[in-house]
């Protein structure tokens, strides 16, 4: 250790000697215009770089993590809720409820019907339940509902996660009552409202109106 220190000292002494000889031209300095440019730049930016407090970086990191996590949760929740609202909604006919459970989630998400877009804010679960252009489901008999419900039992946990969506679906009136209301509106001559309500009914219970008309025929 002592030897090493002596060695360092000797090196320093030698470097000092060389430096002494080397630093022989004190007049060697930057030109005035370079000085002026640097100082002018410094004046221009003075105070623009505000010193950040020491806690800034960890705080920013923590905030980023929290935001990213909540976003991820939200996206995940929406992805789960979107295809499954139909089965969770109590009053939806079994024929229409069966569709989302059998259709792959990816398919339901990638091919939303135009109705989905129209009704997404209010009745997204029910609307997404039936992919567009699948009349086969419309002809399914209502009696099949219990059997399908039994098949879907393992998904009860998922359904539980969709509680908010199903609550919203529960808020929808029964189709019969809804139709009666529409007919009342038509009777009162409030045709625009009646048409709008009819469209909503069709979106919430796809095929129900057609099925009912057929059964009447």
């Amino acid at each position: 250790m002592k030897e090493r220190s002596a060695d360092d000292h000797a090196l320093t002494r030698e470097l000092d000697g060389l430096s002494h000889g080397y630093r022989g031209r004190p007049g060697d300095a930057p030109p005035a215009e370079v000085d002026a440019a640097v100082v002018a730049h410094a004046r221009q930016l003075a105070g623009r770089q505000r010193r950040l407090p020491a806690w800034w970086v960890p705080a920013a990191l923590a905030a980023t993590v929290v935001i990213a996590f909540s976003l991820m949760l939200r996206v995940q929740q929406e992805a789960v809720m979107t295809p499954a609202g139909g089965e969770a909604a109590g009053p939806v006919p079994a024929a229409t409820r069966a569709a989302p459970a059998e259709a792959p989630v990816g398919a339901a998400l990638s091919e939303p019907s135009p109705q989905v877009a129209a009704q997404a804010p209010r009745a997204a679960p029910a609307a997404v339940a039936v992919p567009s252009g699948e009349p086969a489901h419309d002809t399914a008999v209502p009696e099949a509902a219990p059997a399908r419900a039994a098949k879907l039992a393992p998904q009860a946990g998922v359904a539980a996660m969709r509680a908010p969506a199903s609550a919203e679906a529960d808020a929808l009136p029964e189709p019969e009552a809804w139709l009666a209301k529409i007919e009342a509106l038509e009777a009162e001559g409030r045709m625009q409202e009646a048409v709008a309500e009819r469209e909503r009914l069709e979106a919430a219970y796809p095929g129900w109106l057609e099925q009912r008309a057929r059964s009447r025929d």
Binding site: V38, H41, Q49
Partner: peptide, 14 residues
């Protein structure tokens, strides 16, 4: 030389 001082000025807060 100018680039060096420009960086010093820009990163003075760091």
């Amino acid at each position: 030389f100018q680039e060096t001082w420009t960086r010093v000025i820009a990163h003075a807060d760091r």
